[in-house]
Design a protein around this nucleic acid. Structure first.
Lengths: 210, 210
DNA sequence: TTCTGATGTTAGAGTGCTCTTACATTCACC
DNA sequence: GGTGAATGTAAGAGCACTCTAACATCAGAA
């Protein structure tokens, strides 16, 4: 049969579902949503092109699972970055911007699909859940920065712009020709941009402007 | 454009190349790069699926032409917005952020491909030219805002963050669930974010920080 | 008017992908 | 050890798309 030195390819993968998501994310990073296909992911995972359909009803479901995993991973990273940033609320929030940029540089276009692809309603749920977790995490951090009497809607708007700044910078970096030769510098720049936004908001509040 | 008095479908289209680019952009706005196909564009333009190949060597070339057209149009809009904003340099630069957001809201995902798709080397040129024109336009506006002794590299970095902010906000808006029910409010928010960035930079410069 | 090149059409070869069906292997549990 | 459910494979139907080839039409110059 199979000698111990020759690990014969096992019939069962072990945890194919997770493997497919992992390879799917890697493929997305390389080719973007346009180049994503169930068949390619299956090849990368070392299984037949029919195997994924045991775990996902269709292509869109696999794509959604990948997107949800990416958002979840990003959320964890942002939370960790905030934790490492120390006690100052503004520091903590600003740290998420540089963490986001660093993730984008490390994982290339993996970020693309998160806010670029329209998911069908039946696959939205998982993506939506993770997306909500990301928003909640940032909102909680932002709430410590802004005055306690800030209306909820305004808090959300603030978070939205904060995330936009980080996302835009990350997007342009990964696709926009500029080589990520100095990730630290880019991450620092994203943090600075976040700080500008925070300072600008607080100054407007102090001046009594909406 | 067909003459209004002759509704009969003519054998020759008139200006198919331009028509294909126009319909290509519209299709991109609806489906994104993933849903883009030469065949669909041909149907929309009212010609056979082989006709586009008289004007573009392959799919990628048509896609590049659409991208270049979009970037060119955006550049013109930003320049106009700056012109309308009046004499103050900071006003002029900030106006480009809201103009960018407004464009994204009007044309949905048309912005996506500009910084999302990797074009093959042989088709990059046109895209690159228009991209350069956009950068140049913004750089010229930024040069009036920043101190005269600002190093060129730093000026570029500043423009990069400025564009990122606008791009990120526009991207999240068009795809991120939030309905564009009040385009004016969103555009204003983008302008404010740009102003925060400008003010933050100038404050750091005044404090002697890099 | 006639010729010619540009621009359109139809037909179809070739490709790759999605998803299904029928069958093979393995695992978990009795 | 036996058995059913879970998880894999092979084969292929069906589809959309890219791009080519051969032919049709038109516009403008000789």
């Amino acid at each position: 049969m199979s000698s111990p030195t020759t690990p014969r390819r096992r019939y069962h993968h072990g945890d194919l579902r997770a493997g497919l998501v992992r390879e799917g994310i890697a493929l997305l990073a390389e080719t973007g949503v346009a180049g994503f296909s169930v068949a390619k992911v299956a090849v990368r995972a070392g299984v037949s092109s029919a195997a994924p359909y045991r775990h996902f009803p269709d292509r869109e479901a696999l794509l959604a699972a990948c997107a949800a995993a990416v958002i979840g991973e990003i959320t964890d990273l942002l939370a960790e970055a905030a934790e490492r940033a120390g006690p100052d609320p503004a520091d903590r929030l600003a740290a998420t911007a540089s963490a986001y940029t660093r993730y984008a540089l490390d994982h290339r276009a993996g970020v693309e699909l998160v806010y670029t692809h329209d998911f069908a309603a039946e696959h939205c749920q998982t993506v939506h859940e993770q997306s909500r977790r990301l928003t909640d995490t940032l909102t909680r951090l932002a709430a410590d920065v802004l005055p306690a009497d800030t209306p909820w809607a305004e808090l959300l708007d603030f978070v939205y712009v904060h995330l936009s700044t980080a996302h835009g910078y990350a997007t342009l970096l990964t696709k926009g020709g500029r080589l990520p030769r100095d990730a630290d510098a880019h991450a620092a720049r994203a943090r600075t941009a976040a700080r500008d936004h925070i300072a600008g908001y607080l100054a407007r509040r102090a001046a009594g402007q909406p």
